[in-house]
Design a protein around this nucleic acid. Structure first.
Length: 640
RNA sequence: GCCGAUGUGGCUCAGGGGUAGAGCAGCUCACUCGUAAUGAGCAGGUCGUCGGUUCGAAUCCGACCAUCGGCUCCA
């Protein structure tokens, strides 16, 4: 140890401090302030994540991480996962440990126990976690060689850890951490000691395949979360409860939008009010597509086997398809709209002057999904894609993709959605040459970059015929669902021998874009329902106005108001039931009707309506004409 | 499909080896009412389905179906 040497630490604010070499980061944090020493969980030294007990040996920039930093939270949750593993190992001796990472709002750890865990076990494990936290055991890092690590975990009978080590590159330095008598293979870093962890809650148990492959053994995964303050944990749990209240399956039943019945698992039924939503969305969709130069088509749901063989679906997508037999010939129910659309393109010869040709279709597709994945409207077995196929010159592809990106952005803005974008590349089971894939992928990348969009790359997640840009929206619990997608395809034009006549009078091969904006009407309605918690903007609301006569003698006037609103295309209902005003208002509120018009003696006398808005409350009296203008304006601008 | 949990009137749920109970909703009646639940009465269930154990099953056992939370897969 060099005792006299000084090291310089550059802090995030730019200030530089000098310390004796070999000082620990925790000591540095203390020198800056007691609060930082208390709240720091780990640190970054020249951008590298390290433990607070590690030492500073040379000049470096350092940054302390607290729970307020994303990376700090991850360290905190990851350390909690280790403590949970320690608790599980103590309560269930012989349990094998797999992996235990931090995730978005918490952590999980995968175990291979003798018996699956029960919900009651979670309580016991939580108690043991509390004991470990109370004991305030330090997290100690130890570096070891591959051989040492193999010996350690092999002796401990930790087969999964051994497998992990064996799969790591030979030259990577290994480390493990222990707290008390518990040891785990881990890169770290960790919080200094178990006492740093405060409020831990285990949320649920679920099965999960080892290394995410269904070919492997199914392990038992315990999900949990942790916070440095009890109040933060409670707030988080409250948010989860709140989100469940927005669940589209619950809201959809309450507002009578749709149902899913035993008779048709994954095949949703749309009720009258749900159909209003759908139809309004479709109406908007048609208007926009007209503006963007699309033409609408409709193709059959059932087409013959030869077509699906030609398109490659027979080879690449069969396990997701439904089949039938007509006059002793094989047919399939379409899982995608593209082959049908291609047949439309092929009905005549096309000139380069016509391109791009944009053919849109609200196409009902059926896909066989595993029973365990069905989820309300979000994941179903039949759905309507707001599909379109663009046939174009290769030189038009980037520009067309940019157009679609802009169009999707326009659509999502109307609903106030935030989204994130992923670029999905060549999957294992794919058609076409590597060069084609490379060209297509780089065109998509260039389009994204031209729009300055941040995106994440999703390796191997493309369609079997081409790479794609996916647009993901969030549901009420923060789970993301792919909605919009843009796929660039050089394969189908080849397979179907598509052509256009060029300037030179010769036949050339066009390129195709497959794209959806809503994704599927079903999923989009699910997202929409959760986003607005059922309180749809007026333009979408199944019932826009409910007229509430105060007593039976005001019912006649209420009917007049109803007629007047109907006349201008407003969706209106009269609640003429023999109930108190407050009762009818409560019900209209629960049904999330945007406007309630209370009509009593005063309104009858002056020809007005007393307006109540579902969130703004009592807005006072307006003449019927004024109210009509305001509402039409709100609907026209699609205000949300 | 796999792991775990759940399944009782339209909804939310209680009960539990001796052939079902509440609240809300529905219907009827009374009240004729001014911004989130007026009162009274009535009606409503092969306890997911099929099979087994039993003198007797909604209750115990098994299989299946569906749903929920995940895994895997995808719009």
């Amino acid at each position: 140890m060099v005792d006299n040497k000084k090291v310089k630490a550059t802090l995030p604010d730019g200030s530089v401090k000098e310390y004796p070499g070999g000082i620990t980061l925790l000591e540095i944090a203390s020198s800056i302030g007691p609060r930082l020493a208390r709240e720091a969980l780990a640190a970054k030294v020249d951008g590298r994540l390290v433990d607070l007990c590690s030492t500073l040996e040379r000049d470096a920039s350092i940054q302390f991480l607290t729970f307020d930093d994303e990376e700090g939270r991850q360290v905190y949750r990851h350390s909690t996962a280790h403590v949970m593993a320690q608790a599980v190992e103590k309560l269930f001796p012989g349990v094998k440990l797999a992996i235990g990472p931090a995730i978005a709002d918490g952590f999980y750890y995968d175990f291979d126990p003798e018996e699956p865990f029960t919900t009651e076990d979670l309580g016991k494990i939580e108690k043991e976690i509390a004991n470990i936290i109370k004991a305030d055991l330090p997290f100690e890092r130890r570096e070891l060689t591959r051989l040492e690590a193999l010996a350690l975990f092999r002796d401990a009978g930790q087969d999964y850890k051994v497998e992990l080590i064996e799969d790591l590159p030979e030259d990577v330095p290994l480390s493990c951490y222990n707290q008390g008598d518990f040891v785990d293979l881990c890169m770290g870093p960790h919080v200094p000691s178990t006492g740093r962890l405060k409020s831990v809650k285990l949320l649920n148990v679920a099965g999960a395949y080892w290394r995410g492959s269904e070919k492997n053994k199914m392990l038992q995964r315990i999900y949990g979360t942790s916070f440095p303050k009890k109040a933060l944990l409670e707030e988080h749990l409250f948010r989860i409860e709140e989100a469940k209240r927005r669940d589209h399956r619950k809201v959809g039943a309450e507002l009578d939008l749709f149902s899913i019945q035993e008779e048709g698992p994954g095949f949703p039924f749309f009720h009258p009010k749900g159909m209003i939503l759908r139809n309004e969305l479709e109406k908007y969709w048609r208007e926009e597509h007209k503006k963007w130069g699309y033409q609408e088509i409709r193709t059959p749901i059932i087409l013959n086997r030869a077509l699906w063989e030609k398109s490659g679906h027979w080879d690449h997508y069969r396990e997701n398809m439904y089949f039938t037999n007509i006059d002793e010939n094989d047919f399939a129910v379409k899982p995608m709209n593209c082959p049908g659309c291609i047949l439309v393109y092929k009905t005549k010869l096309h000139s380069y002057r016509e391109l791009p040709i944009r053919l849109a279709e609200l196409g009902l597709v059926h896909r066989h999904e595993l029973s365990g994945v069905l989820h309300g409207l979000m994941r179903v077995r039949c759905f309507t894609q707001d599909d379109a196929h663009i046939f174009m010159l290769p030189s038009q592809s980037k520009e067309e993709i940019i157009g679609v990106i802009e169009m999707i952005d326009d659509f999502y803005k109307v609903f106030g959605f935030f989204y994130h974008v992923e670029l999905s590349t060549r999957p294992e089971k794919a058609m076409g040459s590597d060069e084609m894939w490379e060209t297509a992928t780089s065109i998509l990348r260039e389009a994204l970059e031209a729009k300055g969009m941040a995106y994440k790359v999703n390796e191997g997640d493309g369609a079997f015929y081409g790479p794609k840009i996916d647009f993901h929206l969030k549901d009420s619990l923060g789970r993301t669902w792919q909605c919009g997608t843009i796929q660039l395809d050089f394969q189908m034009p080849e397979k179907f021998d598509l052509s256009y006549v060029g300037e030179d009078g010769l036949k050339h091969r066009p390129v195709m874009i497959h794209r959806v904006i809503f994704g599927s009407l079903e999923r989009f309605i699910g997202i929409l329902t959760e986003h607005f918690a059922g309180a749809f903007p007026a333009w979408l609301a199944p019932v826009q106005v409910r007229v509430i006569p105060i007593t039976e003698r005001h019912a006649g006037y209420a009917r007049q108001v109803e007629d007047a609103l109907n006349e201008i295309g407003i969706r209106v209902e009269v609640d003429a039931r023999n109930e108190k005003v407050s009762y009818k208002i409560r019900e209209a509120q629960n049904q999330k009707v945007p406007y309630m018009l209370v009509t009593g003696d005063k309104e009858v006398e002056h020809g007005t309506v007393a307006v109540r808005h579902r969130t703004k409350g009592d807005l006072g009296s307006l003449s019927l004409a004024e109210f009509q203008d305001k509402l039409l304006e709100e609907i026209g601008t699609k205000l949300y």
